[in-house]
Design a protein around this nucleic acid. Sequence first.
DNA 1: GGATTTCTTTACTTGTCAGTTAAGTTTCCT
DNA 2: AGGAAACTTAACTGACAAGTAAAGAAATCC
Lengths: 229, 229
Amino acid sequence: MTALSRRQQNKIERERRILEAALKVFSEMGYSGANMDAVALEANLSKPTLYQYFQSKEALFSAMMLGERDQMLAVFERPSDRGMVADLLEFSWDYADTVLRPDLLSLARLIIGEVQRFPEIGRAYQEVGPDRLLRGIMDYLEDQRRTGRLAFDDAELAAQDLWGLILSAPRTQALYMPDRSPSRAEIARYLNNGLKVFLKAYSTQPETDLAELARLIGAQSLNQVQHDA
Amino acid sequence: MTALSRRQQNKIERERRILEAALKVFSEMGYSGANMDAVALEANLSKPTLYQYFQSKEALFSAMMLGERDQMLAVFERPSDRGMVADLLEFSWDYADTVLRPDLLSLARLIIGEVQRFPEIGRAYQEVGPDRLLRGIMDYLEDQRRTGRLAFDDAELAAQDLWGLILSAPRTQALYMPDRSPSRAEIARYLNNGLKVFLKAYSTQPETDLAELARLIGAQSLNQVQHDA
DNA sequence: GGATTTCTTTACTTGTCAGTTAAGTTTCCT
DNA sequence: AGGAAACTTAACTGACAAGTAAAGAAATCC
């Protein structure tokens, strides 16, 4: 049932390759620093062909950015239900693994670096990245409040706190120092501590939840050791 | 006692103007996007003169960045002693006012955007910005622990938490959206909440300190109203 | 298998920008 | 005042990059 001719398939595949190449080149060099020959080379095609797909450098840049943005919409669907603490821990790791991925960090650097020239792009990403994520966290935290496991007035602030506690430090560091990307152990350190503080401040049963967290962390690092062995 | 001739003064003044112009132009356009004619124009001098002061675009860029870095060393000396909660509140506002200044945000965007091309610069700023600040916070928190007002195992993590709680959200937002720079009221919202959570998690007398915080915030917003009237 | 679309190669135009040169002008020192 | 240092103007070189043109080669469709 592929209603697509070979020609159309090729077109789609080529466009995908161009956008992929554009992401790589623009991420590495910035918008002004990048050149279209490099994109064409990276995409394994000629410059005239490239210009048949995208009318200009700016058009390519915008298309690439919006495409990447739409891919982000796919990530971050709400997780399982193995208890709040386990959920939070799992979620934190998912988020860390995403947000610290080298390609997404490069993209973030590109956006931040070009945001004065392309302000719409900054907003577009704020909406689908941070804002959407925050919504997800807020919804989850609200649920936990309704069942009496958390206590807070302002769900948005609580969600911001969670994010700030677990990932602001390693992410900021990674943004400024692409070479020193934090190890699993470092991430675990920030993450475990962040959750601890979050539970201390927001849980209705801090002792129980902290004990649970400690148990889960212990089990995890045990797993880690087994894997390493 | 000005041992400086007119000529030397002019030279210094001109260099200052060039560096200032460079900061503005590079911040707005990025390294590749900026051009030396624009810098010369902004500094009110001719391009050949510009090249007499700096041998190349890259040399100018580096000199400017290092100069800005050294200026940052001046900020952030340890504050008064009107009680821990008051200190933390004062410190938080100082830090917010600095870190959210438009020119420093532009600089941060520039660094992040160019860090793949100039990795040394990212490290240089990490050292004098975040790292030095963190040290300052750590030292202060350690003092408070010694006098029994705070409790924690790891001072570095505690300091990271404080920073993550009070400023990660508004700063991230400001980085991505230069036009939507947060209002005093928004900053206050993040900041007051962040301190609340920090004290809940780390204070040895949470109730007392939270009451003190509420009192100080109340006094502050009263002042605000008086100022507005 | 032949016509058609699409891609490639190569070379070109045009504009921009880093960096320079040279001749003339201003500023400063003594 | 007079000479040296520094600055300006204006034009230039060379490189690089955005975007285009034309002619041929390859894939694709019928």
